[in-house]
C-alpha cells in the first residue's frame, strides 16, 4: 500500500505542458503513465475487510516509528480495514463502499437513498446538467441500488460489481456529479473557497467532474452534504488534520461527544481507506 501512495504523488506531475515536447518525450511519458497504471492495477479496487494489524505490519518500528505507533494506537479503537486502490478516486470510492455496506444491512436506508438519488437526478437537470450523458450515470446508479433492494444482487454480486472497473466507474461518476451538484447549488457559499482565479463552475468541471482527480477538502464537504452522511476521518499524520487533532468530523461543527459516524475513513498522506470500529463490548 505504501507503494500506491508513492504512485499517487508522482501521478500529480502528469499535467505538464504538452507544448514543445518531442515525440520521444511523449513516448517516455506514455510508458511512465502505463507503468504507474499497471502498478495501481496490481491492487484490487476494493480490498477485502481485514484486520487492522495488516496496517501496522506496513510500517517499520524503527524507520517509520510515528506511523507505526499511530497504527498501533488505532487498533485500540478500530478492528478492521478495507484497503481502497490509490488511483485518484479513492475518497469517492471509499464513501461509496461504506454507504453500500450500510445499505446492504439496512433496507430502509437503502429505500431512502434510492429516493434521494432520484431527487438528485432531477436536481442535476435543474442545475444545468442537461445532457442525457449525465442522467445516464444517475440511472445506472439507481438501477444498481434497485437491484440490491429487489434482492437481485446479493452482497457477493455487489462487491463483484464494485470491483469491476466499468461498473464502478459509472457509480463513482454519480458521486462526482452530485458532489459538483451540491457545490453549484450552493455556489454563493463555496465560491470564496475556490482559488487560482477559477470560477466555481470551472473548478467543478476540471477537479470534480473529471475522473481520477483527487478530492480536496471542498469535494469532501460537498459529497458528505450531498449524501447526507456523518463521516469521520482519522489522520495518520496529525499535521494533515484541519483542526490540528487526530480526526475530523463531517459535517463540520460536530463535537466528539455526540457524534456517531456512519462511515470512518483513514487518511494517510494522499490516500483514503475504510476503517471499522471494534464492536462495543457489553458491560
Amino acid at each position: 500500500m505504501l507503494q500506491t501512495d508513492m504512485v499517487h504523488g508522482s501521478s500529480e506531475n502528469q499535467t505538464t505542458s504538452t507544448e514543445a515536447i518531442t515525440e520521444d518525450e511523449i513516448l517516455l511519458q506514455d510508458q511512465q503513465l502505463k507503468r504507474i497504471e499497471d502498478e495501481q492495477k496490481s491492487a484490487p479496487l476494493v480490498g477485502d475487510k481485514c484486520s487492522l494489524f495488516s496496517l501496522v505490519a506496513l510500517y517499520d518500528p524503527d524507520t517509520s516509528s510515528a506511523f507505526f505507533s499511530k497504527a498501533n494506537e488505532l487498533t485500540e479503537v478500530y478492528s478492521d480495514i478495507r484497503f481502497i486502490r490509490g488511483d485518484g478516486n479513492c475518497f469517492y470510492r471509499a464513501v461509496l463502499v461504506g454507504l453500500v455496506e450500510i445499505m446492504l444491512a439496512d433496507k430502509e436506508k437503502l429505500r431512502k437513498f434510492i429516493t434521494s438519488s432520484k431527487e438528485w437526478t432531477e436536481k442535476l437537470v435543474k442545475l444545468g446538467f442537461p445532457d442525457w450523458t449525465c442522467t445516464d450515470f444517475c440511472e445506472f446508479f439507481i438501477e444498481f441500488l434497485q437491484n440490491i433492494y429487489d434482492g437481485k444482487d446479493n452482497a457477493d454480486a455487489v462487491f463483484k460489481n464494485l470491483n469491476d472497473d466499468n461498473t464502478a466507474n459509472y457509480l463513482l461518476m454519480f458521486f462526482r456529479l452530485i458532489t459538483s451538484g451540491h457545490l453549484k447549488e450552493n455556489a454563493a457559499h463555496y465560491e470564496p473557497f475556490i482559488g487560482e482565479g477559477l470560477t466555481l463552475a470551472q473548478y467543478c468541471e476540471t477537479e470534480i467532474e473529471a475522473m481520477w482527480k483527487e478530492s480536496d477538502h471542498l469535494a469532501i464537504i460537498a459529497l458528505v452534504k450531498a449524501t447526507n452522511i456523518r463521516l469521520r476521518i482519522e489522520y495518520m499524520d496529525r499535521s494533515e488534520a484541519p483542526n490540528g487533532g487526530w480526526h475530523h468530523n463531517l459535517p463540520d461543527g460536530n463535537d466528539d461527544a455526540s457524534f456517531v459516524p456512519d462511515i470512518t475513513l483513514l487518511y494517510r498522506p494522499g490516500h483514503y481507506d475504510l476503517i471499522y470500529k471494534k464492536p462495543a463490548v457489553a458491560s
Binding site: Q14, T15, T18, F129, D131, T133, C134, F137, N169, M173, L177, E205, T206, E209, A210, M211
Partner: peptide, 16 residues
Amino acid sequence: FCLPIVTAENWKPATK
C-alpha cells in the same frame, strides 16, 4: 490535431 476537449487531462465522461 490538438483539441482540448478530448485530451486525457480535460476529458469529462459526460462529454458527448
